[in-house]
């Protein structure tokens, strides 16, 4: 469950002066297992909204509740535990360049303290599913943009998160791969994961009917 109650977000402006607001009075909720498109023009605040949900920032105003945890009053350690239950596909992938594809995908499981035997089985299966079974040992710099994106997707879903956030997850994928990814996200949603996907891809949105959160200049318009 994701619940926003009059949430606003402001970033510190460069140099002294007032904070620069980027999101205003957002109120909405997404139930457990819900699927939402997050749409809006560039600069509308999609990434800022995702940042709030993957706990890179805390709300400046209002009340945000994620997976039954009130973010305003949560303790630091609690937030770390919450992050382990949230999977994120970043627009810029954010893979660790010194680690292989295998180690990048395994990272959430290792942070969660899973056994290496289980990690090996899960990661090998996940990389096989995204079509990278031949590139387990490849560092990200040797992979194409599409392959890096698939590693990022694999890392986001490997720990079976309860909330999955994706920022333009199909930007570097061909149509076939994009459709395949969408089917995976919908399957995760059907199994109970709340999924929110930010995208500019109107074709994708029109082919996969789901409620949308539309942002315009930092405000929710529908």
């Amino acid at each position: 469950m994701v619940r926003f109650e009059q949430v606003g977000l402001s970033y510190p402006a460069h140099g002294p002066g007032p904070l620069a607001p980027v999101l205003y009075d957002l109120s909405f909720s997404v139930p457990e297992g819900g699927f939402r498109w997050l749409v809006g023009a560039s600069g509308a605040g999609k990434t800022s909204l995702l940042r709030l949900m993957y706990l890179a920032v805390r709300p400046s105003t209002g009340r945000l509740s994620l997976l039954e945890v009130d973010i305003g009053s949560a303790r630091r350690r609690q937030l770390a535990g919450l992050r382990r239950r949230i999977g994120v596909v970043y627009q810029d992938f954010r893979l660790l360049p010194h680690l292989s594809a295998f180690d990048n995908v395994a990272l959430p499981l290792r942070i969660d303290g899973r056994s290496e035997g289980q990690i090996r089985a899960d990661v090998v299966e996940m990389l096989r599913w995204v079509g990278l079974s031949g590139k387990l040992d490849s560092p990200p710099e040797t992979l194409s943009g599409g392959e890096q994106q698939r590693v990022a997707i694999a890392r986001a879903v490997i720990a079976r998160p309860r909330l999955l956030l994706a920022d333009e997850p199909t930007g570097n994928l061909d149509e076939v791969q994009a459709e395949r990814l969408l089917r995976l996200l919908q399957e995760l949603s059907r199994l109970g994961t709340t999924v929110i996907v930010a995208t500019h891809n109107r074709g994708l949105v029109s082919r996969h009917d789901a409620p949308s959160l539309r942002l315009d200049h930092g405000r929710l318009v529908c």
């Binding site: 993957y54 706990l55 890179a56 630091r76 350690r77 770390a80 535990g81 919450l82 992050r83 382990r84 239950r85 949230i86 994120v88 954010r94 660790l96 010194h98 990272l107 959430p108 942070i111 969660d112 890392r155």
Partner: peptide, 16 residues
């Protein structure tokens, strides 16, 4: 810094 932010974002505790 970047690697720490990524690992922190994946849920690593300060202790980790």
């Amino acid at each position: 810094r970047e690697a720490i932010e990524i690992v922190h974002g994946l849920g690593a505790t300060d202790r980790y």
